[in-house]
Amino acid sequence: MKLSINGQAREVDVDEDTPLLWVLRDHLGMTGTKYGCGVAQCGACTVHVDGVPRRACVTPVGSVAERDVVTIEGLAGAEADAVRTAWEAIDVPQCGYCQAGQIMTAVALLKEVAKPNDDQIDQAMAGNICRCATYVRIRRAIHSAAGDDS
């Protein structure tokens, strides 16, 4: 099966109903995308499919064959740079396991809403669980990445 991952053409020999997350991690060795709950509850496996955040654990790989998949390894652009800078400056991660998913969602939000308010941030990020509960810093970092340090 032919895939486009982070702008690169990849070919994998897998069943169409293999979860995209398995293909990324086990077949392509791209382990930045994390396995959390496996049932679309925690958001740790978030990738972008044609720019839209998508839980890779419940995405059959056959459904993304003709589409652009972006993972944390290939996340680029002004929003991604701003988010990475803010995450570092504010020391967001603790254990770090959920953070790839958090960043994928945060960047997707900022691509659509340049200066999100608290409600917009909470609604966008509600699908990404953090057991270290870094939520307050995530919220602050998204504001910071948006150039709004209030």
Partner: peptide, 8 residues
Amino acid sequence: VMRMNESP
């Protein structure tokens, strides 16, 4: 578990 929308 607590989610972003439930955090202070």
